[in-house]
Design a protein around this nucleic acid. Structure first.
Lengths: 246, 246
DNA sequence: GCAAAAGTGTTGGAAATACACCCATGT
DNA sequence: ACATGGGTGTATTTCCAACACTTTTGC
């Protein structure tokens, strides 16, 4: 390892040099984890990105990632990144896909495992400003560094599919939310408009919402009721569906 | 690399020794691909397994896998394994999940990318006997070597889900098949019984089957019509469905 | 009282399910 | 002739989509 690389490593900063040295140390193969961290704010779906510090991609945004350490497993590495960048533990995290094109990383052969994560943006707001982190509207995410655009697209499509089949969306909302919040979330993620009455009927008939008998505050119109999601009930009732549908 | 390992490598046989040496060569990290190869024969869903040659797992069955080479990407490695073990190219192949528990492999830190593959068993039948390969009923797959049971279970569940959403099943059937074949396939994979008339109605209404005006031969009952799957039509018509369903 | 969004029911059509009889072939 | 599975149609139910008016709050 070069002196530069050692110095960088001491500062716990990953530059191209440090990564390159780690790749070289391991006979040309390294393994990383990249996290696509979604949030929901101002009725828009957001993704957390960081400015690339690599010359080759200067000015471009990239996903949050790091090399997997010798003594941690893949999920562990992803949780570590989440914790470091958002301060949050206990977040929704799902492995999505592994990307291993030969030349995907300038430092050498770096295979990366992509994770999709959903967080409630109100729960952190902290570790953001100090770094070069930024929440981007998913509709404006283009031209990311490395192959991160492809990784992001894959994770976004996965999220769109998953949210229609499982109640993941609640991870993006505060504990208490209105039905309007919920519908805005679905409309933002799926990029569609839905009928308010049918949406409501759908969710009430599923019977996974708990009416907590509180109302929205400080809205300039009739306040809506607030609900919590009933995870236990969902776990018990979730469908074991068999059918053909394509 | 040890002399033994070099000798094994020359014979193109992977033993624990060779893998260990490769892992050591690469500073403790290696990347492999494991293929869960499904087939359909005698109306049973089968998976292709090989006897483990590692002492630790002597007598146990394992998936077909190999280390990823420095100059090939992940899909490439999976296709290579498929080609080597079945003689087939042009097969259905899908990356499913990456497994990276720290101690999953006795040779060291070997992270493996699992692939699910579907083949038509009639198209090979060749490279089987010479090796220690065997088609196992999926219902009898237990106690595989390494963490291969977990990998298999994950891929099987993925197949069950996918086949309900996409017309993958045709990859397991001959080009020409009867509706009964198709139904048997679905019943075997999903482990359910279906109503013959409704099954038929369903597939005809989707309009992806081409009646090729041939009949089954040598059946001891009224012969059924044979069909082909119309991939082009499917690609054009496939649904872009948006809804909530859990 | 007005603007803005919450809350609520009904109806028609499409799709899924359940179900029973006749037909073609080999033996 | 009979055993075996192929092929077909209908009635019922369930689910989804479309649609409009009244209510509550802040200003």
């Amino acid at each position: 390892m070069s002196v530069d690389a050692q110095a960088d490593k001491a500062k716990n900063i990953k530059t191209l040099t440090t990564i390159q040295s780690e790749v070289e140390d391991s006979n040309g193969l390294a393994l990383s984890v990249d996290c696509v961290i979604f949030g929901f704010d101002e009725n828009k779906l957001k993704v957390l990105l960081i400015r690339s510090d690599l010359k080759k991609y200067l000015g471009k945004w990239s996903l949050l990632g790091d090399l997997v350490r010798p003594n941690e497993d893949l999920d562990g590495a992803a949780y570590r990144i989440l914790k470091k960048r958002t301060g949050l533990s206990d977040v929704y995290l799902e492995q999505v896909h592994t990307f291993g094109s030969i030349n995907r990383h300038p430092a050498g052969r770096v295979v990366t495992v992509a994770y999709c994560s959903l967080i409630n943006v109100q729960h952190h707001k902290l570790n953001i400003l100090e770094n070069e982190l930024h929440w981007h509207d998913v509709t404006n995410v283009t031209d990311l560094a490395f192959d991160h655009q492809e990784i992001f697209d894959t994770c976004y499509r996965r999220l769109q599919k998953r949210i229609q089949e499982h109640p993941l969306g609640f991870n993006l909302l505060p504990k208490k939310f209105s039905l309007r919040d919920l519908q805005n979330l679905y409309e933002a993620i799926l990029n569609v408009k839905m009928d308010r009455r049918n949406f409501r009927k759908k969710f009430f008939s599923m019977d996974f919402l708990i009416d907590i008998d509180e109302m929205e505050q400080d809205v300039p119109h009739r306040p809506g009721k607030l609900y919590k999601f009933n995870y236990e009930k969902y776990e018990k009732k979730k469908k074991k569906w068999v059918g053909i549908d394509f």
